[in-house]
Design a protein around this nucleic acid. Sequence first.
DNA 1: CCGTTGCACGTACGGTGTACGTACCTGGGA
DNA 2: TCCCAGGTACGTACACCGTACGTGCAACGG
Lengths: 212, 212
Amino acid sequence: MALSRTSIVEAAIQLIEREGADAVSMRRIAAELGVGVMSLYNHVPNKAAVLDGVAEAVLSKIEFTDDPGAHWTDRVRMQAHAFRQIAHHYPRCTMLVVSRQLHSTAGLLPVERALATLRSAGFDGADAVRILRLFIAFIVGSLLREVGVTPTFAPVQHHTVRAEDLDQALFPEVSALAPLLRSCDHEAEFEFGIELLIRAIAGHLSRKEGTP
Amino acid sequence: MALSRTSIVEAAIQLIEREGADAVSMRRIAAELGVGVMSLYNHVPNKAAVLDGVAEAVLSKIEFTDDPGAHWTDRVRMQAHAFRQIAHHYPRCTMLVVSRQLHSTAGLLPVERALATLRSAGFDGADAVRILRLFIAFIVGSLLREVGVTPTFAPVQHHTVRAEDLDQALFPEVSALAPLLRSCDHEAEFEFGIELLIRAIAGHLSRKEGTP
DNA sequence: CCGTTGCACGTACGGTGTACGTACCTGGGA
DNA sequence: TCCCAGGTACGTACACCGTACGTGCAACGG
């Protein structure tokens, strides 16, 4: 396969998913492609550009199956889940996506869809932007926890601290709720948050249109 | 000053805040302290431990002025803002705090306070944990946007894309709301999100206790 | 036919984390 | 008092990193 920007980015993605973000180096990418290190620089200005490309590529793989006829709450649900699904397909790359601010138009399509949905629901421009930012903050924060819990597919990774060696007098609630804190059904947590947010902004909407 | 783990971590914090996370290296830290590189390893096992120490130290500087007598909504507000204030004092380090999962008890005190507040408000254990995770996700996501917008205190950093070179036919909403998207009053956005979340969980609570 | 252009490549430089061996200085027993 | 054991600071060395630079080859337009 001919060397190209996209083939380099693709190799970087596979390398990240296989061995983690720390393993990414120009030399490793070149070896992956069976090519000299400096040949990469004929297609890519520097390493940062490769990482930008990774974020852009992953982001553009979100599958939006938007149905403009559905109720806006269902559309919001769909878009949130579509955004979240990339974290399952590319868990290691997700950290890159959320921790780099991108300079391309790749991230604009989700934004456009979301704003259109919110506007069609009846929110004015300012509220639509605010609410979009609220959802993005929640989704990004959730993804960060999910991928942080699998830093290197570590076997069992004792969540933070062993239960028995924390002072029950100093942390009564934490030790009482330790089992709940240790385990986390990410799917259910995400669902809970999204549903609560949707209800909240629905209330925000009806409150603005004139309290019923 | 005698070399020690805390002095090394403190030097790392100041270095990060002054020159950014990329500038952090064991050699730079040693130079900062006027000391040989390998002397650091008498007090710290490796670089990752230094970064863990930075996250732990920054997190432990949160000032909680919790008033157990206040209404639980006010206590939640206070704790959320206390958490957020570290992003203002240590913007560059914040990225480290949110992108590393920590293995110490430093992060447990905020968790304990939050759980106690939620329990006193009437939530059961499972809901308290869920709601705490919801708030953390929102706060972390918000901080990530705030610090991401000032990656290196860049002068004006054209937010994502210049307004004029995006296709208004492809992105009608984005281009129409461009001014709103470009500027962001982080304080106001955070306030909006927190208030909406508090109202939402208050509704969640009254709905569980028996709909009024 | 020749010149230009573009791509793959090797070498080299400064920087990184850290394993290892060495020297000092200090404290406690003989 | 002597002596030595341990902790601390240090220098050297190695493998790896990103990438600036110069070289050779193959394709193509004149």
